[in-house]
Nucleic acid binder design. Structure first.
Lengths: 171, 171
DNA sequence: GAATTTGTTCAATTTTTCTTGAACAGAATG
DNA sequence: CATTCTGTTCAAGAAAAATTGAACAAATTC
């Protein structure tokens, strides 16, 4: 029998992964690297993705052999973007986590938390650039470039809701 | 007169930025950080974006005060995704660089070089996961999750051309 | 064809980011 | 109310990524 799925009491955390699980985790670790997301975050999400049942942080720690700190921070990161949610499990006071598997949720949480703030600050920077154009030797050229930047900025803002919508349509 | 735009011979590289240029560079440095692109790459692109005339690598080095190695690697990175192109300048045998300012080009070069390879390798990983499902204790559940991964994969592949198209439409 | 100019490469270093684990705070238990 | 359990925080250490600069190769000049 697969040791990962065997019955274990609350005090004996699970400690080994099936080959299938290892491969799923590997997939998410690579995806995380592609998006410059910490490896441990990819591992945790991959683990939860491979599991049917909610698991407590202790299992995340023992199965992935990562530290308590990493597990706690990684789960927080995932909760913040809505990629993971915690669930009540009868008779166990610890939080138990499950992966959120709707791409739409992942994408929109990621965009909201990790992309939109940058667009926000980009808007302020554009305003500052504008205020400096007057001091420039070739204000006409500078103005033209600023216009183009503004166009990019608004274009990207328009793409975001669409990406969300696409993810929704695909569910 | 703005020292950056003053006449200087080929042997006297430019050494100072206008406030406007500094601000444009700052914008791109932050954008680069958001995309996890090296700071120096953002600086170089920002500098070229702020300039009307093509400049040689020497000017990139002296204006940004970065090393020859960084400038060379950064320009290569930008050339690879098509964000920068080199231009012939009469009477000077050095390469001169200009920023490519069409968002469409930037986006599609970036997707081609930095995103698609990951999707490619993701396809292989999905196949490997499939081959391991048989060994799993709960193959039904595993199959279901694999299906969802495949859906994500193909959805993302469908979004890419669209993002390109959007960028094009906005020019 | 020697000397100079231009640009690349890569090992060493610096900087940044991630991870660890111990200390801590709050909640639950007995 | 002392003890245990659960989870967070953060300073220190480890790992990863970016930057530097010197060595090199190739092209150009004289």
């Amino acid at each position: 029998m697969n040791p990962v799925l065997s019955d274990q009491s609350q005090t004996n955390a699970k400690t080994s992964l099936s080959p299938y699980q290892a491969e799923v985790i590997d997939l998410f670790v690579h995806a995380a690297q592609a998006l410059s997301i910490p490896r441990s975050v990819g591992e945790i999400y991959g683990l939860l993705y491979s599991l049917r049942e909610p698991v407590p942080m202790d299992d995340v720690i023992s199965l992935l052999r990562i530290s308590k700190g990493s597990a706690s921070q990684g789960l927080r990161w995932l909760r913040d973007i809505g990629a993971v949610r915690s669930t009540y499990v009868n008779g166990d006071r610890r939080d138990h986590y499950v992966a959120e598997i709707e791409l739409r949720r992942l994408a929109s949480g990621f965009l909201r938390e990790k992309v939109e703030p940058h667009l926000e600050s980009g808007g302020h920077r554009l305003a500052r650039i504008e205020s400096l154009i007057a001091t420039e030797a070739d204000p006409e050229f500078a103005t033209d470039r600023l216009q183009k930047l503004r166009k990019w900025h608004s274009l990207i803002k328009k793409i975001l809701p669409f990406v969300r919508g696409f993810a929704k349509a695909g569910e």
